[in-house]
Amino acid sequence: MADDEFGYTAWGRDWVRLAEPLSLIKPEPLLPRARSIARNNAVRTEIEGTMVRAHIHRGSEASVTHLELTSLPRATIEAIAAVVPADTLTLSDELHAAVIGAGISVTPVLAGTDCSCRARGARCLHMLATCYAVVRLIDENPWLALDLQGYRSAPPDTRTDAPVSIPHWTPIDALDPAVYFG
């Protein structure tokens, strides 16, 4: 695993599973192209809280992809803080092993994905390329693996144990025309 281009740190390997889940029963034909796009720096990412926005340009096509991650529950954040010293500058593989050894899961969970491409599926080429681009960023800075899950973003007293779910779409019958157009 040390020779892998994506996920060469323990923190990055957790994130590779977003693109390469173990539950797949057949090979994913888009993975080699997605790795190539990420490898050639064709993914421009913008990170804001637990949201990743990626702009991907390939030839004459351009796509915007959004990945939204669920936030870690307060109990998990407190458990990680008990294992990882507060003055830690770089998260090492040993700290990852200590977190996992303490029974804490830091595996990311996608809350939602969206892409402007024509694929119409949740696992399009652009989503996979964005996952690989994020893995490269995490391999460079492992703190990003926790920050994308809300580890250091909100004050401790405002975090809740239940992840907040923001609906991606609003059903049309949920809107009141008098309020909407008034």
Rank of each mutant, 00 (worst) to 15 (best):
R53T: 14
V16S: 05
V64C: 13
A102F: 08
L30K: 07
G182V: 07
L24W: 02
C124N: 05
V43Y: 02
V83K: 01
T130N: 03
H66E: 15
L89V: 11
T45I: 07
L91I: 03
G121T: 15
M1E: 10
S71T: 15
D87L: 06
S153E: 07
L89G: 14
Q149R: 14
E94H: 12
W143S: 07
A111D: 11
A102I: 06
A133R: 01
I25M: 14
E28K: 11
G182S: 10
W143R: 07
S153L: 10
A10T: 04
V64M: 12
A54P: 05
L31H: 06
H66V: 14
L22Y: 10
L24Y: 04
T88W: 10
S23H: 13
E140P: 04
L91G: 01
V164R: 15
A54E: 03
T9K: 03
V99W: 02
G112Q: 00
H66S: 12
E68V: 14
A133V: 02
E78P: 04
R33Y: 04
L18Y: 06
R44G: 01
R44P: 03
S92A: 08
V135E: 01
V43S: 00
T65H: 06
L91E: 03
A119D: 13
N40T: 12
H66C: 13
V106P: 01
R44S: 08
A34H: 02
D3W: 11
A98Q: 09
A54C: 00
G101C: 08
A129K: 00
A82K: 10
S63N: 15
D4M: 11
V135R: 02
R136W: 01
P156A: 09
S23V: 09
A79H: 03
T70L: 15
V99T: 10
T76F: 01
G101Y: 07
A145Q: 01
A62C: 10
L72M: 14
L18N: 03
P27C: 08
L137K: 07
C124I: 03
S92H: 07
T50W: 00
V135T: 03
C115M: 01
